[in-house]
Design a binder for these strands. Structure first.
Lengths: 311, 311
DNA sequence: CTAGGTGCAAATAATTTGCAGAGGC
DNA sequence: GCCTCTGCAAATTATTTGCACCTAG
C-alpha cells in the first residue's frame, strides 16, 4: 500500500508555476543543478523565484519524479527518475560531464553485502570518478546521459534477450536432434520453432528501435552483465554434448528456463516503467510458458514410463 | 617518479599548529567533519581559527594523509588515509554512522566497466545508503569504522590466505596420493608438507592477531570476495578426482598457483601500507615459490619422458 | 474563503579569501 | 628579514525560511 507518485501531492493545489518548472525539467537532458534549472525557467518566465525552483525540485524528489545526485561539486544535481532506470555514474573531473551505466552484477554483489551486514539498503551510490575518453583523447564518443539512457537501456535489454533466445534456440535444436523418444523430440522441435519465431520478433523489434535513432547501435554499453542468465543455455547445450536421454534433456531445459525466467523477472521488476522493463518482463513471461510446457512434458514422460517400465 | 606524500609540503614550513591539528585528526576514530575537528582542536588549544583547520585538512588531503568523503549531508567528512586501506561505505540515514567494507569483486567489475568505456578511473565511490542493523533491531553490532578497519582488514586477509592454503594442502595431499611417478609424488609430498607448515604459521599469526583484541573475531566481515582465487585449488582438487597422471597434476598445480599468486599480488599492491597488504604480498611470494618449483618439476618430467618414450 | 503556492529578501551553513600580523628558517 | 602560516572577519556559494501576498478549489 505504498504511495503512488503523482504530480499533485496529496492535498496540494495545481500550480501553473510548478507545472511549468516540471515541464522544463523533464525536457532537459543530463543532470541539471538547481541553478541551471532556475536559469532555464527564468528564460521562459522571468517572474519565478529561486526558492520556488528549489521547492519544486524538493517535491519532485519526494514524488519520485526526480532523483538528487551528488558529484561532489558542492551542489546537488537532479535527474529525471520517471520512466528512467536507476543507474550508476561515470563522472569526469575534467569536463564535468557524467555518463550513466548499470551493472546487474555489481547490484547483486552490493545486495549480498548489505544482507551479510544486516543492513537495509534504500539506495546505492556507485560512481567512477576520473577522466573520460573524450577529455583524454579528444575523440568524442557520445556519452550516455539522461537523454539517451531510456533508449540505450531498451537496446541492451533486447540484446540480452536476443542472446538468451539464441542460446535457447541452439539448445532446443540440439536436444531435438539427440532425443530418441518421439514425443519428447516433438516437444523440443516445437520449442525450437517457437524460439526461432520469437527470435525473429525480437530482431524485428531491435531493428525498429534502431530505425528511430541511427546512432543508437554505436552508443556505448549501458547495461553490463556477466551474470548467470548469460550462460545458462550454453552450458545446458554443453551438457547435451555428452549424450543424454529425453528425460535428462527435459530436466536440463527446465533448469535453463527456470533460471532464465527468474533472472529476467527479477531484473524487470527492478526498474521503473521503461521500455527496457517491458522487454524484460515480456521475455520472462515467454520463458515461463516454455518452463511450464517442459514441466508438463516431463511429468507426462514419467507417467508413460511408469506404465511401461524400462524394457 | 610520483610525489611521495610528506607531512611537510614542498617549500612549506613546519608549523606547530598544523602538526597539532594533524595529530588530533589522526587520533580520531571514524569520519570527522571539518567542524568536528575544529571543535576538538579548540578544546585543546583555543587559539586556533576555523580557517586554519580547513586549510590543514586541504593540505592533508593533497598530501594523501586524509581522504574527503561525502555522505550527502551537505558537508564533507574526512577519514585518515594513512596505513588504511581504500574502502566503500554503508551509510545509515538514521544514526548517521557509517561502516566500512570492501569487495574485490565489485572493484574488479568497476574496473572492467571503466575499461569498456575507455574511462580512466581516479577514484571509485560506492555507498550503500539505508538503515543499519543497530537502528532497525536495537541490537548493537560493532560497526567497522576507521578505528578498527586496519585490524579487521588484516584479519580478513589472513582468513583469505588460510582458506587458500587449506585448499592447497588438500590439493597436494590428494595429488601425492594419486601420482604414480615416484619423483612427481615426492614433489607433491614436499609441497603438501610446506603448505601444512605455512598453514600452521598463518594460524599462529591469526591467533596472535586475535590476542590483541578479543572482540576482533566477532566483528563483521570487511573484505568480501567470491573471486577466482577462492575456488582455484578446490576446483583443481575436483579435477584430480577424475584420476590424472603426474604431468596433468603438475599442470593443474601450476594453474592454481599461478592464479593464486597473481590474485594475491595484484590485491596486495592495491593497498596502502597496511598489515593486510603485507599479508597479501607475503602470501603471493609463497605462491610464486611453489609455482616455480612446480614449473621446474614439470620441465624435468618432460625431459625424462623424452629420453624414455612412452612404454 | 482558505490552505497551500509564490516571490522577495533575509537567514543559515559550509567553506573560502583578504589582509595584517606572527613565527619559523 | 623573508616567506609562509595564522587568525579574524568579511565574502562567497548553495540552500532554506519568514512573511506578506496570491490563487485555485
Amino acid at each position: 500500500m505504498s504511495e503512488i507518485p503523482t504530480l499533485k501531492p496529496a492535498g496540494g493545489k495545481r500550480s501553473s508555476k510548478r507545472d511549468r518548472i516540471l515541464q522544463i525539467f523533464l525536457r532537459q537532458e543530463g543532470h541539471v543543478s538547481a541553478d541551471d534549472l532556475f536559469a532555464l525557467v527564468r528564460h521562459e518566465d522571468s517572474r519565478v523565484g529561486r526558492a520556488t525552483v528549489y521547492r519544486s525540485l524538493q517535491s519532485m524528489v519526494e514524488a519520485g519524479i526526480a532523483r538528487k545526485v551528488d558529484f561532489g561539486e558542492g551542489r546537488s544535481r537532479y535527474e529525471p527518475a520517471h520512466r528512467h532506470p536507476r543507474h550508476f555514474h561515470l563522472v569526469c573531473t575534467t569536463c564535468h560531464q557524467s555518463s550513466e551505466f548499470l551493472s546487474s552484477d555489481v547490484e547483486g554483489l552490493l545486495q549480498e553485502i548489505a544482507g551479510a551486514r544486516n543492513f537495509q539498503p534504500k539506495e546505492t551510490v556507485v560512481q567512477i570518478v576520473g577522466v573520460c575518453e573524450a577529455c583524454r583523447t579528444g575523440t568524442s564518443t557520445p556519452p550516455i546521459d539522461g537523454s539517451t539512457t531510456g533508449l540505450v537501456f531498451a537496446r541492451d535489454a533486447l540484446r540480452m534477450a536476443i542472446a538468451t533466445e539464441q542460446s535457447g534456440l541452439e539448445f532446443y535444436t540440439r536436444a531435438a536432434k539427440i532425443t530418441s523418444d518421439a514425443r519428447g523430440r516433438r516437444v523440443f522441435q516445437q520449442l525450437a520453432l517457437e524460439e526461432g519465431e520469437h527470435l525473429a520478433t525480437l530482431k524485428q523489434r531491435y531493428a525498429e528501435l534502431l530505425a528511430g535513432d541511427p546512432k543508437l547501435e554505436s552508443r556505448p554499453t549501458f547495461l553490463f552483465f556477466k551474470g548467470p542468465a548469460n550462460r545458462l543455455f550454453s552450458s545446458g547445450a554443453e551438457e547435451l554434448r555428452h549424450g543424454v536421454d529425453a528425460e535428462r534433456a527435459l530436466l536440463i531445459g527446465i533448469k535453463c528456463e527456470r533460471g532464465s525466467h527468474q533472472f529476467f523477472k527479477k531484473y524487470g521488476e527492478r526498474f521503473e516503467e521503461t521500455e527496457g522493463r517491458r522487454i524484460f518482463l515480456e521475455f520472462a513471461a515467454e520463458e515461463r510458458d516454455h518452463l511450464n510446457l517442459l514441466i508438463r512434458e516431463y511429468r507426462a514422460l514419467r507417467e508413460r514410463r511408469k506404465k511401461r517400465p524400462h524394457r
